[in-house]
Simulated scan of single mutants.
Amino acid sequence: MNYRCSGLQLAHSLRGMSRHRCAKWGVAQLRTLCGGGLPGHQSSALLSTNKHGCAQVSSESRESIVGTYAVKRKELIPEASPPSDHDLRDLYRFVEESQNLVVVTGAGISTESGIPDYRSPNGAYSSGFKPITHQEFLRTAATRRRYWARSYAGWRQFMAAEPGPTHRALAQLESKGRVMRIITQNVDRLHHRAGSTNAIELHGTTHRVFCLGCGELTDRHKFQQRVCDLNPDWAAAVEALEKGEPGSDASFGMKQRPDGDIEIDSRFFQEDFLVPACEQCGGVLKPDVVFFGDNVPKARAEEAMELVMSSDAVLAVGSSLTVMSVFRLIRAAIERGSPVGIVNIGPTRADELASLKIEARSGEVLSRLLTMGSLAI
């Protein structure tokens, strides 16, 4: 079913095909994007429904929209000098001398993939962003609606991110037997996509949804479709604002955040957004991630600690090591007598404990490391 219409007609068409009251934000933005009289933009758009019955903007209209409105995001990776030859030689010896090297990674390595971190000068905290806490998520249904509306909107851009040079270099070191295993704070699953086979996701992953009632795990793609089915107008609005390429951003108060959601200006938030309940027990669903204020599951924390205790060196990459869940691993390695190396732009909580610290972009550091001696590929 296709509709060719002006911006105002498009809003009425959305109402006609929707099972729910039309999202004010979605219609307003679609009216603007798809022909609201802006100079140089066509006054018609092609709207269709996908195979699931959810409203969507056609690819030809989306390409036009993206070409007009998508803007490059500001540089996410902090400025840093290239690593010195001395630094690279020290890191080479650090890796070469280890037989059971464990690598701990943080959000800094995914900035090279277009995903912002928290604490760097260009990170999410620099703009005043405060991530949702576990307690806030549990407190009210309104908070959960806002979270899931934002998370739904940001999911496809988050998924569009590709593994960066650090992810790929670590996967290659793992395949060569030079890295025993990776422990990551990141929830983006880019280590897996780069080829790392058994990374411990210390803080979980956005790729699964978890029921707080019965513990049922659901694939995120399935959950996204359930959200679309319940909120076709919101889905259409998000479709209209689809990004043309990883790292690009649209205006309208939308900013990508480190855990995959998008910060949406409160003026555009849809209060009647519907959140799916657990299909098994009707319970509350949350992403299978450790929010701020929550604890890493005991079994996972113990697995990470056992791995560190069985290693003979730990290399921390792209992390300020601020949160206790990861700092305790570094502290345990130091207390055990294992050397700790750090590759990170800016200070970390463990700088005074480390035997090696390199302040440079991790992708550049590790890519050059793979050209050296026995580590060369």
Rank of each mutant, 00 (worst) to 15 (best):
D219C: 09
R328T: 03
M17C: 13
L369E: 05
A70K: 02
R31P: 00
G293F: 10
M305F: 01
A149E: 15
I345T: 15
T105Y: 00
E216A: 15
D233N: 13
V238Y: 08
E245L: 04
G16M: 12
G128R: 11
E136A: 14
R220E: 00
C22Y: 05
N100G: 10
S251P: 05
Q172V: 02
R257I: 08
L285C: 07
S81I: 05
H192M: 07
N122H: 05
V179A: 01
G37V: 10
R368L: 14
F137H: 08
D219Y: 03
R119F: 02
D265W: 05
L212C: 08
A240R: 11
M159P: 12
F273T: 10
G114W: 15
S127T: 04
V209H: 11
A236R: 08
L190R: 14
R145T: 10
T133M: 00
K286H: 05
A277F: 12
A360G: 10
F292W: 03
I264L: 01
I330M: 03
S61M: 00
G346H: 14
S43V: 05
K222A: 13
S6G: 05
A235Q: 08
V340W: 00
R150Y: 11
W155Q: 04
E174T: 00
T205L: 05
L46Q: 11
S61C: 05
E97H: 04
D265V: 06
A313L: 13
G247C: 08
A301S: 07
K286F: 08
M305W: 03
L202C: 01
T68N: 09
T371W: 06
Q56T: 02
R150P: 11
H41D: 13
E112I: 10
W148Y: 03
C5F: 12
P39A: 14
Q224V: 11
Q99S: 05
G123H: 08
P163N: 07
D233M: 06
V179L: 03
H86M: 12
V343L: 04
T140V: 03
R89P: 00
W234M: 04
R139Q: 15
E271W: 07
K286W: 09
C278P: 12
H41Y: 14
R181E: 07
